[in-house]
Amino acid sequence: MSTPSRTDAVTDVVTDVVTDAAGGVVTDAATHAPDRGHDHGENEGHGHVEVDGVELSAELVEGPSVASHDVAEYALWLGDDSLVLAQQLGWWISRAPELEEDIALGNIALDLIGHARSLLHYSGAESDRTEDDLAYWRTEPEFRSAHLFEQPNGDFAHTIARQFIAANYLFELYSRLAGSADATLAAIAAKAVKEVDYHRDHAAQWVLRLALGTEESRARMICGLGDLWPFLDELFVDEPLIDRLEGVAVRPSTLRGPAWDAMAPVLREAGLDEPRGFISSGGGRRGDHSENLGPLLAEMQVLARSHPGASW
């Protein structure tokens, strides 16, 4: 019989934690901001939490890289998309259909908020604004998110439909942006693409489960996809800014084909037709937003705006 010894690693951990809890924490916490993220080293695959967005330097090219006005605007577009989507997904944590999904949707939201922070940090440098200045102190018309990301969570099928479109779009976008002439954007994209690759896998698996699961889930998946599909087109519109950023930005219209090529096999396997219905005229890149953004920002910004100048 192998009797585990009490003097093994368990004891080490215990001692370690006791030390933390019993006083060491005072000076430690006072001097070390918990910016190091979690060390869940032993977790496998993507299923771990890593607040790497908390420490930005890892994904940002530090140094003289202040974006030009146009690049800053472009970074703002992408940052707002991720921020708004992360804000929506964060709602699910503690409300998901099963614990595993609380964790999965939480992971995705955390990845997205990491991308948003990098992009907003980079965007803000040009106008001497921090990521929080941009997130909390802009008004609705100053946001640049596309309407897809602003759409409400709906039921789980709506959230999955939104994730399916968003993750496939973002994957194609970041795959190409990783080759951008702008080193900072390229670095952010190179990191983000690995994460959104997992997001699209997560979404694809749920599209299949819901579409091929029960009659009810299938009906809901069809409804969710139909409700979100109208917001696909806006993602592929080439705004004038793109013409001025040749080689730096990815031309949205070039992403339509690859994104569709990635989504089509999943829809085929799921036995789902491409929805043919409304097409939203969009306008997020110009500050014209869906009705959902106002309440979302009101909630997101309420505390920060109640305490101007405070730091948290």
């Binding site: 910016d35 607040v51 967005g53 908390v54 921020l83 992360a86 964060g90 955390l110 908020i113 990491g114 948003a116 922070r117 907003l120 990521e131 929080d132 997130a135 909390y136 909630e299 997101m300 309420v302 505390l303 920060a304 305490h307 405070a310 730091s311 948290w312």
Partner: peptide, 9 residues
């Protein structure tokens, strides 16, 4: 409603 993006994360 977290008051900064770092705190939210």
């Amino acid at each position: 409603r977290a008051p900064s993006l770092k705190r939210k994360a």
